[in-house]
């Protein structure tokens, strides 16, 4: 059961290298594609996808916590950006 007022949000954080930061993985994949017969593909960038649940009194608080988490731990702000998707997890209990 939820504690009074607590909500659970499921979170998806997409971590990508910032524009302009060289991506050796992306460019290696891109270079190998023609060898496999895939032509016309460009702009390959490799990132990370991180999912978790978080408990918070409301969505704005959850969003703020996740932003802090991304800034201080999940990304290296020198080279990476995070895109956060957050939704209420109705199936979870807090």
């Amino acid at each position: 059961m939820c504690e009074h007022g607590a909500m659970v949000f499921s979170v998806h954080v997409d971590v990508q290298l910032r524009p302009g930061i060289a991506d050796p993985q992306g460019s290696t994949i891109e270079r190998s594609l023609p060898t496999l017969g895939f032509e016309g593909v460009d702009g390959v960038r490799v990132g990370k996808s991180i999912r978790f649940r978080i408990e918070a009194p409301d969505e704005a608080t959850a969003q703020a916590h996740v932003e802090d988490l991304c800034q201080r731990f999940l990304t290296n702000p020198v080279i990476e950006d995070a895109t956060i998707e957050l939704q209420i997890d109705l199936g979870a209990t807090a």
Partner: peptide, 17 residues
């Protein structure tokens, strides 16, 4: 040390992987 903020910048994967 870069992650800890004691030095600036970051170490990326080597060119050529």
């Amino acid at each position: 040390l870069t992650e800890a903020g004691l030095l600036p910048g970051a170490l990326q994967k080597n060119r050529g992987l």
